[in-house]
Structures are given as structure tokens and as C-alpha cells.
Design a binder for these strands. Structure first.
Length: 301
DNA sequence: AAATCGTGGAA
DNA sequence: TTTCCAAGATT
């Protein structure tokens, strides 16, 4: 008899240890999966759970979100971060209604064509919602595969085609089993094979992990580029949006001016929010979240 | 292809 | 206190 392979070991572990997340319930549809995947982009699970519950209660189908305003989507997004995702998710709902009759498409190419849906999210939906056999590679999977298979301390900065290939080779042939395996690898990276202090004791693949076998060599050199936040345009955008989010309708520019003293930076941040479709000018000296109120008066004849 | 884009909690 | 980083996408 042969030893269980990587996919089998991780899948068995997952079946006993998977977290009980709401979007993993057996009856959730593709829309629920899609919403969760977008919210989880760069945002921790613990913060997503309540936001996802509220979002799904309000907009249980794509058509419901598509019929509401970007402003409402931005408000419901709350403080999940990267609020462009809220606008894109609504754009995505509109596209699903227009192109696919209101149903989340199951084809990878159609998914990839949706706003805010990239390589990871498209594959995640195809696999987790529709049970298709596609490698689903996020930062967790990249790290796990990089360590366990290649024996390297860390993965590259972004998902590359080689990562998809390396992951695909680990998946079982049967589509449902492959999808389960992808979820399992992701979960392993999230709770066991973590970035900072991996808990190798209790890892289901400790015995066949290349990184473990080589003594868990540390990453070389100074880590990645600094990720400072204070004083950046991002912070200013966040402050501006915070005011607009908590106010209904137009906000006088004079009030927005109070969130940041540097005129140049504040103006640049506000212009960026407009460019990104989050904010729109109203009249001469006011701004509001996009669609937050009646549309601008049409030109009179 | 490197930069940009929020937020908050834990180490 | 500072630093790290958490299911990426877009340009």
C-alpha cells in the first residue's frame, strides 16, 4: 500500500478542522460565495463575517444590489477597507444582471470579465460555488505550496502562472475532490502554515513537508517594502470618505477641508475618490457619495 | 510591472 | 511604539 498523498492528507485534516464560516454552509449560492471572496480580499475573516451577514440580508441576489445606489454599497461596506471593492462589487452585480440574467456565471472566462474579479476570485467561485476543477491560488495557498513542495521559506509577491501550475499538480482528478482540496490548502495556510509563526506541530503534512525537512530556513534579506500608512493619500482618502459615509447627501467642501490641513494632498485625495467612482461633486462646493440622492438636474430645454 | 488602494489587530 | 500582515485587483 502507498502513503496518502498531499491532497488526501490536507483534505482529511480539513474535514475535521475547518472553521464554521457562514459562506461554507451547504446551501449558500454562488452570489454568497462571490460576495465573501471579494470581501476577503486583503481583509481578515473575523472582520468579514458580520459585514457579509448584513450584506447578504440586504442584497440576497445580484439584482437587488444592482438596483441600489453605489452610495448605499459604500455605506454597507463599512470599514472593511479598500472601498473601491464595494463599488466594483455593485458594478459586478449590474454586469451579472445585464450579461447573465441575474445569475452568477459558471464559466471561468465570464467570471474573469466581471468588475473586481481577478484570477483568484474567478477560480474560487468556479471551484467553491460550482465544483469545478481549477487551482485556486491565494496568498495562503502560495505560501503552503511554496514551503511544502518547493521547500522555500516564502512565496513571491504575487501569484504567477507557475504557482497555478504547481498547485494544479497537487489536485485530485475528480472535480469535487479538487475543490475540497483547494479549500483545505487555503485553510491550512490560514490557521496552521501561517506567515509568521507556523504551527508545524499538528500539521497534517509535516511528514512530507520539504520546508520542514530542510530545517525551516528563514526568508533572506530585509522583508518587503515598508507599508506605512500615516500621512499617505490612503489615510486622507479614508478620512474624507469617513465623513461622507456618515452623512446623507451632499457635504460642503468646507467641512471636508477640516479632515486634513495640507491643501495639495487633500485635494489630490478627493480627486482620486472622484476618479475611482466613490465620490461625486454636487453643485459648486459640495461632494457626496456617488448616487447618494437624486441625480443631477438634467439640462433644461 | 511596480504602485496604489484601507483598516485594525496582534506580535 | 513600531512593524507586520490579512481569501487581490487594477492600471
Amino acid at each position: 500500500m502507498t502513503e496518502p498523498d498531499f491532497a488526501t492528507l490536507v483534505s482529511r485534516w480539513y474535514e475535521r478542522n475547518a472553521r464554521d464560516l457562514p459562506w461554507r454552509k451547504p446551501d449558500v449560492g454562488a452570489w454568497a460565495i462571490l460576495v465573501s471572496e471579494v470581501m476577503l480580499q486583503q481583509t481578515p475573516v473575523v472582520r468579514v463575517v458580520p459585514a457579509w451577514e448584513a450584506w447578504m440580508a440586504r442584497w440576497p441576489v445580484p439584482a437587488a444590489l444592482a438596483a441600489d445606489s453605489p452610495a448605499e454599497a459604500i455605506r454597507m461596506w463599512g470599514r472593511l477597507g479598500y472601498p473601491r471593492r464595494a463599488v466594483r462589487l455593485r458594478d459586478c452585480a449590474v454586469a451579472i444582471v445585464e450579461r447573465h440574467g441575474g445569475d452568477v456565471p459558471d464559466r471561468l472566462d465570464h467570471l474573469l470579465a466581471l468588475p473586481g474579479v481577478g484570477t483568484y476570485t474567478a477560480r474560487a467561485v468556479a471551484a467553491f460555488a460550482y465544483g469545478q476543477r481549477h487551482p485556486v491560488v491565494d496568498t495562503n495557498v502560495r505560501r503552503v505550496v511554496c514551503r511544502a513542495v518547493a521547500g522555500e521559506p516564502d512565496a513571491g509577491p504575487a501569484t504567477r502562472p507557475a504557482d497555478l501550475v504547481a498547485t494544479e499538480e497537487l489536485l485530485p482528478v475528480e472535480p469535487a475532490a479538487a475543490a475540497l482540496t483547494s479549500a483545505a490548502i487555503m485553510e491550512l495556510g490560514a490557521v496552521v502554515c501561517t506567515a509568521r509563526s507556523p504551527r508545524c506541530a499538528g500539521c497534517p503534512v509535516e511528514g512530507i513537508c520539504a520546508w520542514r525537512a530542510s530545517g525551516r530556513v528563514a526568508p533572506e534579506g530585509p522583508s518587503r517594502r515598508p507599508q506605512r500608512y500615516a500621512g499617505t493619500d490612503r489615510q486622507v482618502r479614508g478620512l474624507l470618505l469617513g465623513v461622507l459615509r456618515e452623512t446623507t447627501g451632499p457635504v460642503p467642501r468646507q467641512r471636508l477641508d477640516q479632515v486634513w490641513t495640507d491643501d495639495v494632498q487633500r485635494s489630490r485625495a478627493l480627486a482620486g475618490l472622484v476618479t475611482d467612482g466613490l465620490v461625486e461633486p454636487v453643485g459648486e462646493a459640495s461632494y457626496r457619495l456617488v448616487g447618494d440622492g437624486p441625480p443631477a438636474a438634467p439640462a433644461l430645454a
